[in-house]
Design a binder for these strands. Structure first.
Lengths: 195, 195
DNA sequence: CGCGTTTTCGACCGTGCGGTCTAGGATTCG
DNA sequence: CGAATCCTAGACCGCACGGTCGAAAACGCG
């Protein structure tokens, strides 16, 4: 057994506690001591299982992303044609944001703040760039097939991703917003933009 | 003389140094010592002129905002009719973001990270909410006058603001993006969304 | 049970933080 | 010129941080 039962359980526990802490007191407030206190355990145990604060936060990011990717890929494969694919992407992204607002907000904190020992950002803009490029590919495919109108694919892709990235905060702020509701209206807005 | 020449000059100098520091090493890296070092002066002088780190960063926010508001108001007053007003707003917002990308990114760092001594965020989401509401008012006015089509004003307002808020980072990342170019294509996207 | 490994604890270390304090230089102004 | 005020430097304080360490406890297994 490479990793014991306790090892797995502890890692999962600390990732959860770090998520809660990031959401409630932000990146600066999420110290090793704070995470340990939430888990009601000694600080050095966190270091024992993760080695460093950076490794802990990277595990948080990994945890959230690995829960998102399969759903998104499945939704994309189920759609036929450029327009349906784009709208399916927007829809599943909104629904995931609605169901995981806290986790995504926490990951955002990590992306914007976590730095390597030398001071450089751990997560650069390259990750976000990939997401924008993916949407832009969807848009170009639709333009070439004639499903979409003529517009600047880069700008529209940027607008779509910006809207999706803003959702986690909005969902936590306004409980009246529902996943399906926002998905429908946002799909409508995207539909209008791409005609 | 309420505030001496030196007082004004120092405050302006430290605000500039704080802006640079926020942009280069982020919120966590922007300590009083770091700001003082950029100004090549003793740390206690910064405290002497501002009283606290919080006051310094609030002065940074005030400085950036006071340079934006007059331009935006002027652009709005010059426009006639709902559609022209909305597009003028988007246009001037993009142009300001293009010309002040560093400053806006720095202010974003402050908004997301500056906390009061009790741990609560100094700048809440209420500020952003005001901006969204303002755009939504522009949209509703256009719908009532028949200039705009039928769509969910709240969602479209959110999309527009999210796109504008994402611009400072994009401008610093991609030097090929020009203010007028992005303004034109974003206005086009907004125009499509609101028909 | 008994022994080796894994896990936990709490004391401890160096560092950098925001901020205070004292004392001395520079300015201003009567 | 002289005194009051403004400004600056640098030592210093208490604190919280990320991380280390040695010893003790818990566990797994023959």
């Amino acid at each position: 057994m490479r990793s014991s039962f306790i090892e797995q359980a502890r890692r999962h526990q600390f990732v959860r506690c770090a998520l809660d802490s990031l959401h409630e007191v932000g990146f600066a407030g999420t110290s090793l001591a704070a995470v340990a206190e939430r888990a009601q355990i000694s600080k050095s145990v966190v270091v024992y299982h993760f080695g460093s604060k950076q490794a802990l936060l990277e595990a948080v990011v990994e945890s959230v992303y690995s829960s998102a990717v399969p759903d998104i890929l499945a939704a994309l494969e189920a759609a036929e044609g450029p327009r349906a694919r784009l709208l399916a992407y927007v829809r599943i992204a909104v629904l995931f944001a609605a169901g995981n607002a806290r986790a995504l907000a926490a990951v955002g904190e990590i992306f914007r703040n976590l730095r390597r020992p030398d001071g450089t950002l751990r997560y650069t803009a390259a990750e976000n760039e990939q997401l924008i490029a993916f949407v832009e590919d969807l848009l170009r495919a639709g333009q070439q097939s004639g499903d979409f109108g003529d517009f600047d694919t880069r700008t529209v892709a940027l607008v779509i991703r910006a809207a999706i990235d803003a959702l986690p905060e909005r969902f936590t702020l306004d409980p009246a917003m529902t996943g399906p509701g926002v998905a429908a209206t946002l799909c409508d807005a995207v539909d209008r933009m791409t005609r």
